[in-house]
Design a protein around this nucleic acid. Structure first.
Length: 291
DNA sequence: ACCGCACCCTGAGCGC
DNA sequence: TGCGCTCAGGGTGCGG
């Protein structure tokens, strides 16, 4: 679910519920690879701490704490970071939803997928991290400690220019779509926005990266900026799981030109959108508009 | 270096 | 109703 725009919206809206509040309790599910830092240690390190800032690095959220350590979060595919008390049907499974009366279907209560529950000394609402597939990650870093996960990220997608793309693509024979998804090249782009940017730039996702000209790299970088910024403006894409920390859906899914629109007519020319597979991921494009 | 693939996990939706 | 299958905004690690 969450790509750069969704993570950025999450950062902005979870901030008020997190910053400056002293952590009283941390409740977790049992150890799993979701916890890069084991739950028991995580609890020990977090209780009594105060979150001083919240930064986004690619698709990661990084929270510096008052003792110089850092809490690192990644939402994976189905991660949901939100404030206790918000209502959204996306916070319940279809089965759970069906079991409730319609007027209660937005109400969230902790379930087996609620891996992190952070409560605060001020007694206000908790911050909750739920993730059905557990592809998300929680990691605590000691003061000064580094992690390859952050170290190897390339330039943030909101700051990536044509020159970055051009330089990174010269030796790459792989499809440009795969290059866009490579977080060590450009950090933050995922499947939706890679497809949408390639459509806007008029480029086929299958094109070998090294075959792009300098101007085409410029066009693609500009398209990426436009797509990402517009998605942030509209609150991100809520396609199946994504919900903002305040419980609201994004609206960018309504502006998609190609992603998950297989068989539908292209907005620009009417040709049916095609879906293919590139690097084990789906790719969507208009066979007429994208060369 | 770089590329493709297996794998991590759960749930929804589909055809039969 | 149930079964088996495919699919899903993520990333890592391996061998070639």
């Amino acid at each position: 679910m969450p790509e750069l725009p969704e993570v950025e919206i999450t950062r902005e809206r979870i901030g008020p519920a997190l910053l400056g509040r002293r952590i009283e309790g941390v409740h977790t599910t049992k150890p799993s690879y979701f916890f890069l830092t084991p739950p028991q240690r995580l609890r020990k390190r977090l209780v009594g701490r105060t979150v001083q800032a919240l930064e986004r690095v690619g698709k990661y959220l990084v929270a510096p704490l008052d003792d110089g350590s850092r809490l690192v979060l990644h939402l994976g595919m189905t991660g949901q970071l939100f404030v206790e008390g918000v209502a959204s049907v996306r916070l319940l499974s279809a089965a759970g939803r069906a079991a409730l009366a319609p007027e209660k279907q937005g109400h969230f209560s902790p379930d087996a997928h609620t891996h992190l529950w952070i409560s605060f000394e001020d007694g206000g609402p908790a911050v909750i991290f739920r993730d059905v597939r557990k592809f998300g990650k929680v990691l605590w870093l000691a003061p000064g400690e580094k992690t390859p996960r952050l170290e190897r990220l390339g330039v943030d997608a909101l700051r990536a220019g044509g020159a970055d793309l051009f330089a990174a693509s010269r030796t790459r024979s792989a499809a440009i779509k795969s290059l866009l998804l490579d977080q060590s090249v450009i950090a933050g782009v995922g499947n939706i926005y890679a497809d949408e940017a390639l459509f806007l730039a008029g480029l086929r996702p299958t094109r070998a990266a090294r075959r792009l000209s300098r101007p085409q790299c410029g066009t693609l970088a500009a398209a990426l900026q436009q797509v990402l910024r517009r998605s942030i403006e509209t609150g991100g894409s809520s396609i199946s799981d994504y919900v903002a920390p305040d419980g609201r859906d994004g609206a960018y899914q309504d502006e998609r030109r190609v992603y998950a629109r297989k068989g539908e007519p292209c907005d620009a020319c009417g040709t049916a959108i095609r879906r293919i597979v590139i690097g084990q991921r789906s790719a969507h494009f208009c066979p007429r508009c994208q060369a």
